[in-house]
C-alpha cells in the first residue's frame, strides 16, 4: 500500500486534470479525427477553415445563448430574429445599397431592442422565458414574412456579404468576427462583476436579489447579449447563404444544443465561453460528419434531440 502512491502520485495530477476537463474537448477532437479519417481532404488548411467559417454563426449564437442559459432561461427567439434581420436588411439595402454600415447599425439597434423586450417580459411580466421567447419566435417570423410579402425579396450588396464570404490574407473575416465576439464574451462572463452577478442570478435568483444584485437588469442584459448575437449571426449568414425566408430556421435549438454540449447547465448557474465555442464547433463538425457519411439532412434533428437529452441526463447523473 505504501509503495503504491509513488507511481500514482506521478499520474494523479494528469489524471485528475483530465477528468476535470470538460468532456467536450475530447468529443470535439474525436469528431474532427473522424472527419479527417472519413475524408482526408479536411486535413488541409482550406477545407478546415471552410468548416470553421461555416460554424461561425452557430458559435456566435451559442455564446449569446450561453448568457441567457447561465441566467437560468432560454432564448428560442433567435432563429426567427435571424430571418427577420436578413429579410429586413435585404429590403433596406435593395433601395439604398450604399448604406451598408447604417443598416448594420440599425440591425444592432433592433437586436438590443428585441433583447430588452424579451428580458423585460420575462423579468417584469414574469412570463417563463420559454413561452415568452417562443411567442416572439412567432412574432418575428410573421413580421419578417409580412415585410417581404412571404418570399425572399431584395438583394444584399457585396459589402454586406463580405463579412460572411471574404477572407483577409486567406483568413476568413467571419472567424475574425467570431474571435472578437468570443474574447469579448469571455471577458464579460468570466472577468467582470456583471459576469459574477449573472452566475449568482442563475444559481439562486432570490439570494442574488437579497444580496443586492439588480436581477432585472442582469437578466435584461443577458437577453440583449443573445439578441445581438443573433444579429451578428444574421449578418454572417446573410453573407454566405444570401436572402431566404428559412435562413434562421432551427438555429435556436442548435444554439441550445451547442451550449449544452459545451457543459452549460440548463436552468442556470454554470457554463464557460471557451467550452461552449468548442461545443458549437463540435455540433457543426458532427453535422458535417453525418453529411460525409451520407445521412439525410433531417436526421440532424434527431441527432440533436439525442444530444441534448443525453447531455442533460449525463450531467444529472454525474451530480
Amino acid at each position: 500500500m505504501s509503495k503504491q502512491p509513488q507511481t500514482s502520485s506521478l499520474l494523479t495530477p494528469v489524471w485528475s486534470r483530465l477528468s476535470r476537463m470538460e468532456p467536450i474537448y475530447i468529443i470535439l477532437a474525436a469528431i474532427v479525427l473522424a472527419i479527417v479519417l472519413s475524408n482526408p481532404i479536411y486535413a488541409d488548411y482550406g477545407p478546415m477553415m471552410q468548416l470553421l467559417r461555416r460554424a461561425s454563426p452557430l458559435i456566435v449564437l451559442a455564446v449569446g445563448q450561453l448568457f441567457v442559459i447561465v441566467s437560468g432561461g432560454f432564448d428560442l427567439s433567435v432563429g426567427s430574429l435571424i430571418t427577420f434581420i436578413v429579410l429586413l436588411s435585404a429590403l433596406v439595402l435593395n433601395t439604398h445599397p450604399e448604406q451598408v454600415y447604417a443598416c448594420i447599425a440599425l440591425c444592432l439597434a433592433i437586436g438590443i431592442a428585441a433583447g430588452s423586450l424579451n428580458g423585460l417580459v420575462v423579468s417584469l411580466l414574469k412570463v417563463p422565458s420559454i413561452i415568452a421567447t417562443l411567442g416572439m419566435l412567432l412574432a418575428y417570423r410573421g413580421a419578417g414574412l409580412y415585410l417581404s410579402g412571404g418570399s425572399a425579396r431584395g438583394n444584399l450588396p457585396d459589402t454586406f456579404r463580405a463579412f460572411g464570404r471574404e477572407t483577409v490574407y486567406g483568413f476568413p473575416i467571419a472567424l475574425i468576427v467570431v474571435i472578437v465576439f468570443g474574447v469579448f464574451a469571455a471577458w464579460i462572463l468570466h472577468g467582470t462583476n456583471y459576469g459574477r452577478q449573472l452566475f449568482a442570478v442563475g444559481t439562486n435568483p432570490r439570494a442574488a436579489r437579497l444580496s443586492g444584485v439588480n436581477v432585472t437588469m442582469v437578466r435584461v442584459v443577458a437577453f440583449m447579449f443573445s439578441a445581438v448575437s443573433a444579429v451578428v449571426a444574421a449578418i454572417l449568414l446573410g453573407g454566405f447563404s444570401g436572402v431566404s425566408t428559412a435562413v434562421g430556421n432551427g438555429y435556436e435549438l442548435q444554439a441550445i444544443s451547442a451550449a449544452v454540449l459545451g457543459g452549460a447547465v440548463l436552468l442556470g448557474g454554470r457554463g464557460s465561453v471557451p467550452a461552449v465555442i468548442a461545443g458549437a464547433i463540435a455540433l457543426h463538425a458532427l453535422f458535417t460528419l453525418l453529411n460525409i457519411w451520407g445521412f439525410p439532412k433531417p436526421m440532424r434533428d434527431a441527432v440533436q434531440g439525442i444530444i441534448i437529452i443525453s447531455a442533460v441526463a449525463y450531467s444529472a447523473w454525474r451530480r
Partner: peptide
C-alpha cells in the same frame, strides 16, 4: 429538455 429532445428525434 426531455420533451423538446423527444420532439426533435420524432421530427428528424
Amino acid at each position: 429538455i426531455a420533451t423538446l429532445g423527444m420532439g426533435l428525434i420524432i421530427q428528424g
